[in-house]
Design a protein around this nucleic acid. Sequence first.
DNA 1: GCTTGTTTTGGAAACGTTTCCGATTTGCAA
DNA 2: TTGCAAATCGGAAACGTTTCCAAAACAAGC
Lengths: 325, 325
Amino acid sequence: MKATMKDVAKMAGVGVGSVSRVINGEHVKETTRTRVEEAIKVLDYQPDIYARGLKTNRTNTVALILPSVWHPFFAEFALSVESCLAAQNYKMYLCNSNGNAEKEREYIQMVQQNKVDGIIGITYSDIDQYISSNLPFVSIDRYFTEDVIYVTADNAAGGRLAVDELLKRRCRHLAYIGGYQETPNETKNRRKYFEIECNARQVQYDVLDMLEPLTQVNRHINEFLDAHPGIDGIFTINDDMALTVCDVLQQRGQHVPDDVQVIGFDGQRIKEQDDFLVSTIVQPVALMAQRSVDSLLAVIAGQTVDNRTVLPVAFGASWTTQPIQ
Amino acid sequence: MKATMKDVAKMAGVGVGSVSRVINGEHVKETTRTRVEEAIKVLDYQPDIYARGLKTNRTNTVALILPSVWHPFFAEFALSVESCLAAQNYKMYLCNSNGNAEKEREYIQMVQQNKVDGIIGITYSDIDQYISSNLPFVSIDRYFTEDVIYVTADNAAGGRLAVDELLKRRCRHLAYIGGYQETPNETKNRRKYFEIECNARQVQYDVLDMLEPLTQVNRHINEFLDAHPGIDGIFTINDDMALTVCDVLQQRGQHVPDDVQVIGFDGQRIKEQDDFLVSTIVQPVALMAQRSVDSLLAVIAGQTVDNRTVLPVAFGASWTTQPIQ
DNA sequence: GCTTGTTTTGGAAACGTTTCCGATTTGCAA
DNA sequence: TTGCAAATCGGAAACGTTTCCAAAACAAGC
């Protein structure tokens, strides 16, 4: 039989109010505190979160809404966020919407009814009205309005960096290959600033941007490469796509990186013992998670927060076994 | 101002008991039901989960305890489990323990105090006493006792399959390369049945099994390969390790698969458009997730359940860009 | 010892449900 | 129409906290 606050109060010979005060770290007389703490230990008392939530409407719980199951960036981000939250004594509901607007709506409703204290969301569908739901909300990689806090990597710099690196490697004819969602989000800057930088540097480039969900990617890439035979430097929306592109190139008998340079985006799961082999623009996942959590908790605590956090990316290497040189 | 049950009752002109009955799908007179449903819609009433949890001690919430942040298998498993749970109207707390026994304990305590209805755990530390915590528990890849339900892939078959495949490819001198935790778990069968099968087939083999956490893996692998120069077929504990092994081989000037065959384990993130390149033993992640959830919910519902679920693995291919042939 | 002001405390009320029991309504046979 | 059993319902009590207010305890100055 689980001990309740009343039990503790009785055993310690105090009122339930005092027990509550001790638990919540409020000021009580030293002797009361020790008596109560003693009783708590003896009875192995643990506060009932549900009773507390009912009374206070605060739950120390945050919901993380993700669009998709398969992208390693999301998985790593999720686990990072969880760690940050746990460190602050928060729990995390994981909600993956499969990029489905309906499911996102359901989750937001579910999550309201469950009285989470806030939401962190990577949302690719159109839920503007919901995020104005009055719950503290931090958006990842997507700008909504000025009052919606968002955290993102510096995708623009990433795009420029990619061009810079490809030119350093003496590429003459660049390409961007990606997939996109209709919903606006920061990842579009990868392409946008790739283009801007190409124009600024006056280098020839072409773009293949496929609408998600992707189908027949290999065929599209092949056709694209057929149509633009001179391409010798490719920047892709993410590492997954970089891999796919490498595969296609290989099938076509072109060698990476002797014939063509490929740079991805994300920089997942770099392990120290690996030898880095495919180039990528590295997103600081852990840092993004940390900042998202910090911002959210600050808002929850009623503080005001920078509503825009842009974290630096870096040129690096990813986890495939395809050699750079 | 959120509508409460009393509001609904008043508006519908019924007692709160009837509202409760409608919400919980119990039988009420048709006219009452429609009146109540009408009021619920008008007031946009949503039950307060915390009040309900306080009263009933059921929360429709499950905790998933994972050991680690970096392993792609766990990430994919986590997201799969979430999907299965969501389909049954359950929420999921994600808890990642970083393989730290202390954190696992904390989570279990946290999770009890939060009245989850059950736990699914991939636990690599020694928490036997806690899992007997009286909460419904499903263990993944690890056997505790006869009464603890567990779900696992057929690691034994995987080990045999690997040998079989390597022999088919005319390897003469096999090796197993892996990392292990001291805690017992089913993944050890990968090595065990590899060895058994090797013995049965009377083929020469060697084993490199490193204690986790891994350090200087590359050096160890190199030394191992130096010590056993004839190895021409390698089975690894998982795909990560397979990649590492491939890297090392490449550095040593040995070509996969012309000189050496490598087979991993897990089969993560296979994408249809990929051309499969490194061999692996594929675990049915989604199925494991589904079965875990099914078992757990069955136990929660008070049904009896097979306490052992072993799911088939298959020979397949994984996601790297290293060509098989 | 009394007064006054400050800490500290006890415990009732409230949060929004579910559950249970007694009361009311309904349906139907006589 | 009446009577009775079955169906349905209303609403109080309870779940375990927090919060608030009045009361008690204490301290200090006279």
